[in-house]
């Protein structure tokens, strides 16, 4: 799980987003692996390959993001990488708790829209 979380952060690095949201985003793979042996193999073998390509300390022992990204570039066309990356697009960015970190306010109808809440409040132009 630690490797998967690090990998998720290296794929979509946002320094202001805490680890827990990356953990939530990749948790779906754990759950799917519990139900689907093929998915379990995909994830476990994928992590093993990632570690073996990273030298003897494994992926998480690589200290710089760019070192880890270099390993990810080697596997970016694999089904494993694409499953993790693809899952993150919704798994990470569709967490409502993450939206305020990016300044996205989400649902607005219940607040009456932005008519009186700054739809045209830009001042710097």
């Amino acid at each position: 799980m630690a490797t998967l979380i690090q990998m998720a952060r290296d794929i979509y690095p946002h320094d202001q987003v805490p680890d827990k949201y990356y953990a939530i985003a990749v948790k779906a793979h754990d759950e799917q692996a519990g139900k689907d042996p093929a998915h379990k193999d995909l994830i476990e073998n994928g992590i093993a390959e990632l570690d073996s390509k990273s030298g003897k300390g494994g992926y998480t022992s690589l200290g710089w993001e760019e070192q880890r990204v270099a390993v990810l570039r080697e596997i970016e066309d694999t089904p494993f990488f694409q499953a993790v990356r693809g899952g993150l697009v919704v798994g990470l960015y569709n967490q409502k708790e993450v939206w305020p970190i990016f300044g996205y306010e989400g649902e607005s109808y219940s607040k009456g829209g932005y008519m009186a809440r700054g739809f045209d409040d830009i001042e710097w132009l």
Binding site: G103, Y104, E105, S108, G113, Y114, R117, G118, F119, D120, D121, I122, W124
Partner: peptide
Amino acid sequence: DKPVHMYRG
């Protein structure tokens, strides 16, 4: 360099 909030409206 300054906010826009394009999604409003």
